[in-house]
Simulated scan of single mutants.
Amino acid sequence: MVDLLRVLSLGVVVLWHWSLSLTQWNAAGALTMPNPIPDVPGGWAMTWVLQVMPVFFLVGGYANLAGWQAVTRDGAGARRFLAARMRRLLAPVLPWLACWVVFDVVVQAAGGRSVLAWGMAVLAPLWFLGVYAAVVAAVPLTARLHAAWGWRVLAALAVVVLAADAVRLGPGWGAPVTGLLGSLAVFLFAHQLGYFWRDGTLLRGGRRTAAAVTAVGLAALVLLTTLGPYSRSMVSVAGEATSNMFPTTAPIAALAVFQLGLALLARPWLAARLQRPRAWRAVVAANGLAMPVFVWHMTALVAFLWLYERAGFTLATEPTGGWWLTRPVWVVGPGLVLAAMLAVLSRCRRRRRGSEGQPRRG
């Protein structure tokens, strides 16, 4: 089930970026991706399910605690754990980064603008992977704290999140630093929640516990977004004074609790479906592609965007009826480009492995 949730969470992110963003070039020539949430009545409610970044960190907490326990049982230490995790996390990033660096050098040599001038949307995978890498790097510490202090670690992280928000949104002291501190505490909180899933604490009591976790998360979300200074939307919305994602705020921590409760409620049903060999094989195959798909999905979008404009089409700036009708195009188009990219990368990888396996002459 954990593998399925990882695939689903990254899949939702990819599909959201492709089809539920008003992708366009602004007056400065930067690529921007506002969403249509303000134009959809009650659209903010969708983000309470479709903002799935907390799910990825929950699943990461589950998997990382399992990996840490396995390493410590074997008598190995933090170095072995971190080397294996970072290698798995960063391996898809290196060819992606190399391709963009080469492309940027060629474009600038030809008199064009640096890719960095296109806006950070192109480099969206980097911020997420950077935050996740920081959380993984902390596992040797957070796993030990979990074993020693349990729920008190979650409570301390929640206090840090709320304090950072209060300072930043109140008097505004040290906004960049408090924003970064609060954001890191939110994702550490979600990751730490996954530890309680892994160690079985949240599985005791069955559906009753799952329902209680769901209710607590939902109540916290309602209270924070109704009585607090927070947006109801869990994604950034143009024109709103505050964003819950940049910097990341307390409602995202509450969302992690709510979504964990939903996952626990769905667990028996999903586990039964995954007993089918065909379904499980599909999840395993998709899980193997999840990180490469995430790393390359924005590159595929930019490539399709270039083809789309060269074909004479113009980008919509408002979520009109016509824009909604074209949403399938923005799933299929980038999807085909991404499939071609991954096929080329796979072929290059096979050739490199083949050449490395060739006996040397001389």
Rank of each mutant, 00 (worst) to 15 (best):
L145I: 00
L15M: 07
A211S: 07
L184E: 09
F187V: 06
R273L: 15
A98T: 13
V337C: 00
A138M: 09
A272Y: 06
V131C: 10
A124Q: 05
V2E: 15
R80M: 07
G200V: 10
L65C: 11
F258K: 09
V283T: 13
L162G: 04
A143C: 04
N64Q: 10
G239Q: 08
P319S: 00
L188Q: 14
R310N: 07
F196S: 07
G29P: 13
L262Y: 06
P359R: 12
W44D: 12
G362S: 13
A110Q: 15
A254L: 01
T317F: 13
L224Q: 08
P125F: 00
V122C: 13
G11D: 11
L82V: 01
D39K: 11
L50S: 00
L188A: 09
A253H: 01
T201W: 14
R208D: 14
G321I: 11
N26S: 14
M120A: 07
R353E: 15
A279V: 15
G75I: 04
W280R: 14
P92C: 07
A143G: 02
G362Y: 14
A219Y: 03
R310F: 05
L65Y: 10
T214H: 09
G357R: 13
A121F: 04
S21I: 00
L58C: 14
P277L: 15
A185P: 13
T178G: 04
L184S: 08
T242N: 06
